[in-house]
Simulated assay, not measured.
Amino acid sequence: MIRNGAIAILSLAATMAAGDILLIPPLDCDLTQTCYIQQGVDHDPGSGAQDFLCGRLTYDGHKGTDFALPSLAMQAEGVDVIAAAPGTVRGVRNDMADVLQGMPGAPDVADRECGNGVVVSHGDGWETQYCHMKQGSVVVQTGQRVVMGQVMGQVGLSGQTQFPHVHLSVRKDGAVVDPFAPDAPNACGDASGKTLWNTPFAFVPGGLISAGFSDAVPEYAAIKAGTAARQTMPATAPGLVVWGFAFGGRVGDSVTLAIRGPQGEVFTDTQTLDRDQAQLFRAGGRRVPPGGWPRGDYAGTVEMRRDGQTLDVQTTTVTLD
């Protein structure tokens, strides 16, 4: 994922007050290249929803930060959930099935929305909770001491979830705290710059998760699974389609799709979003010309723009032979 510096908002490290907790992200992944933040803490005290930047990368009543994976395939390969800070394990659940809500056979998760997870106490009233972990993957036990960065299990699909991620809740004396803006629980736009993160990193208000080529508009399920992209296709492929999978889409955002081949431009199209969407995909391309496609390498570009500025860009390639 390529983030535009004019858009990506960085949390600036500020002097920590005595007694504050210091955190690292709870996933063993690269937040600039692979995993990403799908949703943050809701700062609207009413029925609306606002993240700490006054944006819409959250939903009403959301009490944590969702660190997401780009595909079910990556989740199946295994991504470790790590302790965000040192502490003592206060509770563990490890027996719930990994089934996305909304899928056939999804269990009733009422009162167990967190799914499999771990709660860690850090002292001085601080605790963190890690939700939606993989069944049977939790390797820590109640009463065990953990250090910052220690593996506690893996990302799963348990509980109330519709995409692979770990939900990190941070609490102080039982109250929800947003690690990006710990002093503004019921307001947004805090300019203090204070954060609980050990190292500053971007809270990106939307962008591209992945991009690829297919010989037709792919099924959304295949994109989410991570199986839609093709690296090679025959020169007789019925179509040449580039697609982009995105998060945090807002009304008015645009997605531009372009394809260039051995003989120059093949396709370009700009599509404008007509509603807010937590996740979405857009695709476009051409049908095979008479006699087939010119053989060689084709490059696809997907650009997401907001308010006249580039929010994110991804490039992808395919070889036709």
Rank of each mutant, 00 (worst) to 15 (best):
D80Q: 11
V146E: 03
I21F: 14
V118C: 07
K134G: 02
L10W: 12
T199E: 15
A225P: 08
A221V: 13
V318I: 09
T256A: 11
M148P: 05
Y220V: 03
D30N: 12
R286S: 08
D108C: 13
S158W: 08
A222N: 15
G19N: 13
P45N: 08
V176D: 01
G308E: 14
S169Q: 13
A211G: 06
H132E: 01
D28F: 01
D269M: 04
M96S: 03
Q231P: 05
E303M: 04
Y130T: 01
R286H: 10
V217A: 07
V99T: 08
F67H: 09
Q160C: 01
L311P: 02
G284A: 06
A73H: 11
R306C: 05
M1Q: 04
S137F: 07
H167M: 00
E127V: 07
T142A: 10
M103W: 10
A110H: 05
Q263R: 15
D51V: 10
D269W: 02
M304W: 10
Q141P: 03
P86H: 10
A216L: 07
Q101Y: 07
G55T: 07
A211K: 00
P200L: 07
H132L: 09
V255R: 04
K134V: 01
A187D: 14
I2D: 12
L240H: 07
T142N: 09
L53P: 09
F245M: 02
A278H: 05
P70Q: 07
E127A: 02
V41N: 02
A237M: 11
G248M: 08
M152I: 07
G153E: 06
Q162F: 12
D108L: 08
G174H: 14
V138K: 12
Y36M: 05
Y59H: 15
Q277E: 14
C131F: 01
C35A: 06
L157K: 03
T270L: 08
M152Q: 08
D178I: 13
M233T: 01
P179E: 04
Q144C: 09
L69E: 01
D42V: 00
I82G: 02
R286C: 04
I82H: 05
G117P: 12
K172W: 14
V89Q: 00
P262V: 10
M96E: 07
T227M: 11
V177R: 00
G156V: 05
G19W: 11
D183V: 00
P294H: 09
P164N: 06
I24A: 00
S71H: 14
G285C: 04
G48W: 09
L31Y: 15
A202L: 15
T270E: 11
L157T: 03
E219T: 12
A97L: 09
Y220R: 09
V251H: 14
A278E: 14
Q135Y: 03
V170R: 02
L257A: 05
L196K: 00
V170E: 04
G159V: 01
Q160R: 13
L57F: 02
F267L: 13
R171I: 02
L320P: 10
H62P: 02
A8Y: 07
A175E: 06
Q154R: 09
K172C: 02
P234R: 03
V139W: 12
T301K: 11
L69N: 05
L240G: 02
V120G: 00
L157A: 05
P200W: 10
C29R: 04
T88V: 15
G285F: 02
M16Q: 14
A6P: 04
K224M: 15
L257R: 04
T315W: 14
V146Q: 06
Q231T: 15
G105C: 10
G249S: 06
G117M: 10
V302T: 11
